[in-house]
Amino acid sequence: MSDALLEVINLKVYFYTLSGVVRAVDNVSLNVLTGEWISIVGESGSGKSTLAYAIAKIVPPPGRIVEGKVKFMNKDLVELSEEALRSIRGRHIGFVFQDPLTSLDPLRTVGDQLAEVIQVHLGVSKDEALREAGELLELVNIPRDRLNYYPHQLSGGQRQRVVIAISIALRPELLIADEPTTALDVIVQDQIMDLLKEVQKKGASIMLITHDVALAAERADRIAVMYAGEIVEYGSARSIINAPLHPYTAGLVDSVPDLWSTKIVKSIPGFPPDLRNPPLGCRFHPRCKQALSICTNESPSMTAVEHNRCVACWLYLKR
């Protein structure tokens, strides 16, 4: 397991709000190998975005990393100082946020923001950085003259491509994309996904956060399914989609409409739990059709069921 690029070990991220402690990420462990694409899927509120923020250690207050390790390039990011983290962020870990309009500074040109990342991390001159920036734009299929444009002058798709350009400017080993296409239309969505695939081909690992199961599976190598702050299943993309083990995963897969079939689309009844007071035992049991009595008392731990396949469900654990 030591050739994993990123190892998240027993991570807990809690939000200390006025109405209680929200256990947004509760004991999550996973790893990301070099050059692989892993998608984290879950409903909104499942903690997937928080997990992503925690890895880059940009969790907004009142959130805090309470426990756990994030091993990246032989360092534990949780323990690292802000100084050291700053040289990792942007350089070795790239981040793409959901809404491209609000993740760019409206007062500065696209070129300035691109060049800045290069300057700050590599210490080159402004001119050199701008030259690099121009090349980066072309890499993402945007004409070089847009360097002088302000974010509001570009289309949504172009903006997101600029954001991606910024995030890959320094060829990071890991690129985290949090719902990168949710704010865009379907055709542009495809282009962005293709772009991310290009980035992966160049050697980077991609961590895609999304609520869209189909999108998650499209180009991923592996998928991790999150529910109520925990990972409930993970394995290769194909096996998860074709043969989902956890009832929640099955529900998710079933809820994807298929253009060619006439099967009835089923949604999962019920609502995600309140993370200030999650249910005892397995957090999914109130909505699970196959719940056993043990599910209401004890929380199932993650166990390997096949090669490269883990699931946290009493249906598959030996009791």
Binding site: I58, G90, L107
Partner: peptide, 29 residues
């Protein structure tokens, strides 16, 4: 300071004093 692009700046590893400066410029308009 709570807006997305400030968080995005931090995620890119831009030093704090610079980020504060950008925040002030935006807040000033």
């Amino acid at each position: 300071l709570n807006s997305d692009f400030i968080r995005a700046y931090r995620a890119r590893g831009i030093p704090d004093h610079r980020v504060t400066m950008y925040a002030i410029k935006n807040a000033f308009i």
